[in-house]
């Protein structure tokens, strides 16, 4: 699948934004966060900037962005529509939660934090479902796709939350342990996913796509319908060299697991402001780069069954 930059930026930025919102809400409900207005302003403000920026980036993928509002209408059948509605709906508890953080006397933050967490979680779940329900793309139609989106959103959010808490002088050792937990889950989910897509072979190929291989004959493309690429080939026929994929997977493992896990452990030993800010900032940058690469790979490695009409005997 063609890795569209707008979609990669959208899922990376808003995934981390929703992760930040969800974890802030959850931790607020259990009183793990300071009732300090500036920390809250930074946390929820950053979450909303990431989410909003991501959503705006996603409209760059549209041929008719001015009609984007129409995408909210088909929630009965379409995960994309559900994602859009949930994304908009989550602004309400997020803003009330922010108000509760800034004005502790006026608004209770716990319940609104929880509500914001649920809305954020559901939004990322819907994002994952958009991909996971596409049967023509075997690599996406996989049980680890939704967990992958959730755990990377959580890792990104947790890392940013750690940075903000370190910068506002509210860092707690437990943040480091939670980052370690998310990084481990991310490593397990992504490695499980890569193992899965290497193992599973779709029964779809040029034989079933044309119906001409029913007797076990080999069916191969002799002549394409057109001499240059068309939309279908450009959008669905993206290929990545195996050695590039291997290298990029190694970079993902380092940036999404090794670096944040190591820095999280280091951060539990540090007790000065500067050291904490530097370690959490480095880890945040590492996770951001890692997620962008992971998202790019998620597209580039996924093969669409339509390629069976364009020369792929197996998909």
């Amino acid at each position: 699948m063609h890795p569209a930059l707008s979609v990669i930026i959208f899922t990376t930025a808003s995934g981390a934004g929703y992760g930040l919102l969800a974890l802030s809400g959850l931790f607020a409900a259990v009183d793990w966060l300071p009732r300090d207005g500036s920390a809250g302003g930074w946390a929820i403000g950053s979450a909303l900037v990431l989410v909003t920026g991501g959503l705006l980036a996603s409209t760059a993928h549209l041929g008719r962005p001015e009609r984007a509002w129409r995408a909210l209408s088909q929630w009965r059948t379409s995960w994309l529509s559900r994602e859009g509605l949930l994304a908009l709906a989550s602004y309400v508890p997020a803003l009330v939660f922010l108000a509760g953080w800034l004005l502790p006397e006026a608004v209770p933050w716990g319940p609104w934090g929880l509500l914001a967490a649920v809305a954020a979680l559901l939004t990322v779940y819907a994002t994952g479902k958009i991909y996971a329900t596409l049967t023509p793309i075997p690599a996406w139609n996989n049980g680890l796709v939704v967990p992958g989106y959730l755990v990377l959103g959580g890792l990104g959010g947790m890392q940013i939350l750690s940075l903000i808490m370190a910068a506002t002088d509210h860092y707690h050792e437990r943040f480091g342990w939670i980052v370690l937990l998310f990084a481990t889950c991310a490593a397990l989910v992504k490695h499980g996913y890569w193992r899965d897509i290497a193992r599973t072979r779709s029964e779809t190929g040029s034989a079933t796509a044309t119906g001409l291989g029913a007797g076990g004959e080999r069916v191969r493309l002799l002549d394409a319908p057109h001499t240059t690429d068309n939309f279908v080939m450009r959008e669905m026929g993206y290929r990545i060299a195996r050695r590039h994929a291997t290298r990029l997977r190694q970079i993902c493992t380092s940036t999404l697991f090794a670096v944040p896990a190591m820095l999280a452990l280091v951060s539990t030993l540090i007790d000065n402001w500067f050291g904490l800010v530097v370690t959490t900032a480095l880890a945040t940058a590492s996770v951001a780069i890692g997620t962008l690469i992971e998202r790019w790979l998620f597209f580039a490695e996924a093969r669409h069954v339509v390629t069976a009409y364009y020369g792929s005997e197996t998909v």
């Binding site: 129409r70 023509p136 669905m236």
Partner: peptide, 25 residues
């Protein structure tokens, strides 16, 4: 009313849907 999100082209195994650059749908 199409917004040109191209998701339908991903959902079609047969490559029946194409994006029209002139109309954005």
């Amino acid at each position: 009313t199409c917004i040109g999100c191209k998701l339908c082209s991903w959902a079609c195994p047969y490559g029946a849907r194409e994006y029209d650059h002139a109309d954005g749908v």
